[in-house]
């Protein structure tokens, strides 16, 4: 049993719902009570998607609280910065080194924050930041869609999580949730990321 809150933040279509399902499944498998929440509907037309996953002895609220979350999984840099206020001091953000400019930026009306601004947003919360080459590695593996699972693999090896939950628990849950045709690639992405983080 482990207590932890997670926020997954990114853009519609990045596989955040699946990653949240995996994270929730791992918590349950590891003996925690679990709740997970996200919004469907209009958010998925290229808008922001945020998923809350909570592990605990007895989880009441399906939503985590700003300033109290231990782990931020950023699927995209800007959305990681936007979700940074959820982090608690001592928390950890693992952030995909990847930018998806929103419409105001592509139209030349706004500026995408620089990496150090993203870092400052996270570090000003007293939290640690790890940039993860998830997009790059997913492309190397042949499918950008596994970037989310790469991020999870990295997260699984980070900090207290690395000791608390065995790699095989993650892989079991992952294999149960990913369609059979994509299992091998996802397992590979996960294991590579975990190995890269714990090396």
């Amino acid at each position: 049993m482990m207590e932890a809150d997670f926020i997954l933040a990114g853009v519609g279509g990045q596989g955040i719902i699946l990653a949240g399902d995996i994270l929730a499944g791992v918590g349950l498998q590891a003996g925690s009570d679990v709740k997970k929440s996200e919004v469907h509907g209009m958010a998925q037309r290229g808008g922001v998607v945020t998923s809350h996953v909570r592990w605990g002895r007895r989880v009441r609220s399906p939503l985590a609280e700003p300033g109290r979350v231990g782990f931020l999984v950023g699927f995209e840099a800007l959305e990681a910065a936007r979700a940074a206020s959820y982090l608690r001091p001592g928390g950890l953000a693992v952030v995909n080194r990847y930018r998806l400019p929103p419409p105001a930026v592509t139209a030349g009306e706004a500026v995408y924050p620089a990496d150090d601004q993203v870092a400052a947003a996270i570090q000003s919360r007293g939290a640690a930041l790890e940039w993860v080459p998830a997009q790059e590695e997913a492309l190397r593996l042949g499918n950008p869609a596994v970037a989310g699972v790469y991020l999870l693999g990295w997260l699984s090896g980070a900090g207290v999580l690395g000791q608390a939950v065995a790699e095989e628990t993650w892989v079991d849950v992952l294999e149960g949730l990913v369609p059979p045709a994509h299992r091998d690639l996802n397992r590979l992405a996960f294991r590579q990321a975990r190995a890269a983080r714990t090396a």
Binding site: M42, P102, P103
Partner: peptide
């Protein structure tokens, strides 16, 4: 931070 509203695909 620049907003990210949903858009037509």
């Amino acid at each position: 931070l620049p907003p990210r509203p949903p858009v037509l695909c």
